[in-house]
């Protein structure tokens, strides 16, 4: 449920993972370019869903559901506030986490994607997770000004996960290929 909500709650965002770093660190030169994602159908209305919102790749069903809903604006407008509210109530933003900080990372795919994160994003992620851990230990929430705002809760990791998954799928395709 959270996954679906986070999905719908994701704001209309910028195109590149490099843009949405909110840290006050001096800019680090990124050595990798963001993989482009064009997995979403083009018939989506731009104001209701940005083309660059990237799916939580591990769940195909959610992706299909998302596509189904965003293709129907009235349905989308009905679900969107509920999703927003659900994410807010889930409370992870109040300990300073973004949704994709909580993706299951104990897989080869996600580990590789994490390695590919540009240094700036990787630093910010580590910072958020440590801060949230501290909140958990002390049973406290962050001061309100430090909460992650809904518009900051962007999918920064999934473009990289998708890239890795695409590679794995390609490798499988070649391994399973037979000559006709």
């Amino acid at each position: 449920m959270l996954l679906i909500s986070a999905y719908f709650s994701a704001p209309t965002i910028k195109t590149s993972p490099e843009d949405h770093s909110t840290s006050t660190l001096p800019p680090i030169r990124e050595i990798s370019r963001p993989p482009t994602c064009n997995c979403l159908p083009r018939n989506i209305r731009p104001h209701s869903s940005p083309q660059s919102v990237v799916t939580m790749s591990s769940s195909k069903a959610v992706k299909m559901m998302y596509n189904y809903v965003t293709a129907r604006p009235r349905l989308f407008n009905f679900i969107k506030p509920i999703a927003d509210r659900y994410c807010d109530l889930a409370g992870y933003r109040k300990v300073g986490l973004m949704y994709e900080d909580m993706l299951r990372e104990e897989t080869h795919t996600v580990q590789l994607a994490l390695k590919r994160l540009p240094p700036r994003l990787a630093y910010d992620r580590a910072f958020r997770i440590r801060r949230a851990l501290q909140c958990s230990i002390t049973h406290s929430l962050l001061p309100k000004e430090d909460w992650i705002k809904p518009e900051e809760d962007v999918p920064y990791l999934s473009p990289y996960i998708e890239e890795v998954e695409k590679e794995e799928a390609e490798r499988k395709m070649f391994d399973a290929m037979t000559r006709k």
């Binding site: 990124e30 050595i31 990798s32 370019r33 390695k115 590919r116 540009p118």
Partner: peptide, 10 residues
């Protein structure tokens, strides 16, 4: 050629 940063490191 795209010169991906991750291809360089990996």
């Amino acid at each position: 050629t795209k010169f991906h940063g991750y291809e360089y490191t990996e």
